[in-house]
Design a binder for these strands. Structure first.
Lengths: 230, 230
DNA sequence: ACAAAAGTGTTAGGCCTACACCCATGA
DNA sequence: TCATGGGTGTAGGCCTAACACTTTTGT
């Protein structure tokens, strides 16, 4: 029988955190899910997350659960919405503080605890547990807004990358197409990128130029804002 | 002695909602505060808010508390952040889901329950209870961001208003000054405003033209976004 | 040989910014 | 009469959007 050790004068909801983790494979946006091992929604896919401890903030809890369930460490998670629909969990009243983060997909491979963690391309997401589909939709809409005013990519792309990869990333998130030449011009002018190493003199033209982010400019634009057309 | 009627297997934090209510007096942004009548922080000023009930969402709770404490009804509150610092309340672990709303200041006068509710100009805010100064700073920064991409004012200004009043509103929130002529031109071009009634033929020129919002255009720009310089 | 990826500039139009003058009124 | 608030327009610069051709390589 259950031991009910914690007593309050008024009823308290349970509080959880959830993490929507976005990755990019060069073509598509992916989302990291874990398969639930217990009821309710046993075997369904869900975001990493769990009950908040009494001595940790929401962000700390989100990072702890993320590491426990996927092996991902030191991820900058950012809170984006708190879901409080009364019956969103069949067990009891549960409020969840939802976070998102952008990570390099390679960083999650090798996670040992990640046995039942898997990346899903954004348009192949399976049916999710609880109200996690709603959480995902909100996360995507917040991400889309954010990307229009802050530079993005540093956390999602490998150290060095091509202009096309960066453009693919923007196009994948915003679900639009940009003119390749205008995209080049705009990014160049922003000063956000620097060429990563010199192309050897005899590099075939077909091999694209590799870039990396200019960290100072990146930080500056993240702070000041950065306009991208939509 | 206290009756501890609610029992859980694991500890649960308490959950509250808070409302940062912004108003505009034609010149300055104001914030609605209530004076606490009980410990902790008795007599200190704080945002309207309180414990969430088990059968209401955060938004419902925020609206209920707002009405109970200030008489304001039917306000569109919007969640902006959840504060979860471990010791933010001396009584017990309390997490608060913070909301903000924009209202016409006139609507709060006449609130009967509003005996100890008062508007404070933004730069004359007294010392606040709990971590409410932090909540206020976050609310203001979210409001500033939002105002750059969505039209604003419908909820803050009277039915009809002058161009200067609208400009004052933007300047008060963003803490910047715009060139009057450029502001006029920009707003005109956006189609957001319509002239409210005809000026009588012999109106003195000194009396400014009154405008009201074009509701369709307002809704459209709210949805599509709207760029304002900073 | 053909499709696919990459590199590169120009032009026209629109938007942003800065800026000046006039009128009416109330003090 | 002077300070204040209100109304109005323009010119230059910058950014945006649309757009084409060439090279190379893999199939």
């Amino acid at each position: 029988m259950e031991e009910l050790k914690y007593h309050y004068k008024y009823p308290h909801p349970a509080v959880t955190t959830d993490c929507v983790i976005f990755g990019f494979d060069g073509v598509r946006i992916n989302v990291l899910l874990i398969q639930r091992g217990v009821e309710p929604y046993k075997d369904a896919w869900a975001f990493p997350g769990g009950f908040l401890k009494m001595d940790e903030t929401a962000e700390e809890g989100a990072r702890r659960e993320l590491e426990e369930e996927t092996g991902l460490k030191n991820v900058d998670v950012e809170q984006f919405y708190t879901f409080s629909t009364v019956d969103r969990d069949p067990r009891e009243r549960v409020i969840t503080i939802a976070h998102y983060a952008l990570v390099r997909m390679a960083d999650v491979r090798g996670g040992d605890d990640a046995a039942n963690a898997r990346w899903f391309p954004y348009n192949e997401i399976p049916r999710l547990a609880f109200d996690h589909d709603r959480i995902l939709r909100k996360a995507v809409s917040v991400l889309k807004e954010r990307i229009c005013f802050k530079p993005i990519g540093f956390e999602l792309l490998p150290e060095v990358f091509t202009m096309s990869e960066l453009q693919n990333l923007y196009e994948a998130i915003l679900e639009v197409k940009f003119d390749r030449r205008n995209f080049y011009n705009k990014i160049r002018k922003s000063g956000l990128l620097i060429e990563a190493g010199k192309r050897p003199a005899n590099t075939p033209l077909r091999v694209p130029v590799k870039y990396c982010f200019n960290p100072e400019k990146y930080a500056e634009l993240k702070h000041k804002g950065f306009k991208l057309e939509f």
